[in-house]
Amino acid sequence: MTRWLAAYAAAAYAFLHLPLLVLAAFSVNSAKSAVWERFSWKWYAEAFADRQLMEASANSLAIAIAAAVLSTVIGTLAAYGMWKRRSPVMAGSLYLSLVTPEIVWGVALLAFFQGLFRFLDVRLGLHTVIAAHVAFSIAYVVVVVLARLRTFDPALEEAAMDLGATEWQAFWRVTLPGIAPGVIAGALLAFTVSMDDYVITSLVAGVDSETLPMAIYAAARRGVSPALNAISTVIVFGLGVLIVVSERLQRS
């Protein structure tokens, strides 16, 4: 069965990576259209010279990191609280937030911010985008962390408290390390959905907070620009190196 599983996984990995390899291939194609001409780095030069694209990439990274950190902290605490004792209202709210069509939530947030701005002198910008991203990422974090907590033995925590640990210490020293893979998975998921979001972001973004998906959507509606293929190839490879390095660090 192990061999079957490996073959199946190989096919699944091919499915996951083939489209991106094609993308990377076309990022070094000298022609602008999807017909192969010859090898060239020129789209990379163009991408890095594009002020709008660079600004959007920086915005996206800053937003995704901030949103992932905030929503992982808030979501993990909430998941822990709900694991200790069920909170049907919170669970229902989070699930409902998961099933809300993005476009509806986006317009809802926009309407809410507009109302808020009548009383406060602020405008749409990075802060509103981060706030929106935290709001829609929390449910993802809670689902993943809670799934992990469900397989965690509560007796371990009780044992720690029997040995004199406070409730906070038991959480921090016993439970959290035990569920760390779930927390990391949740943080990765939050980062991913934040990096990815177009619909809600485009509605609550202001003049200064255009994100990479927004820049890509703008260009993609006019036909694919190879400069965008180049920038996403850079992101994928950069993160790939980061992930391999962090894995090495964990192993050593």
Binding site: Q52, L110, Q114, F117, R123, L124, L203, G206, V207, D208, E210, Y217, A218, R221, R222
Partner: peptide, 21 residues
């Protein structure tokens, strides 16, 4: 600060609030 849009509907949605920047 130079931004772009792709359809008139998108522009309409952007500026409709009267508080777009």
């Amino acid at each position: 600060r130079y931004g772009t849009f792709e359809s008139s509907a998108e522009l309409f949605a952007k500026v409709m609030s009267g508080n777009s920047g």
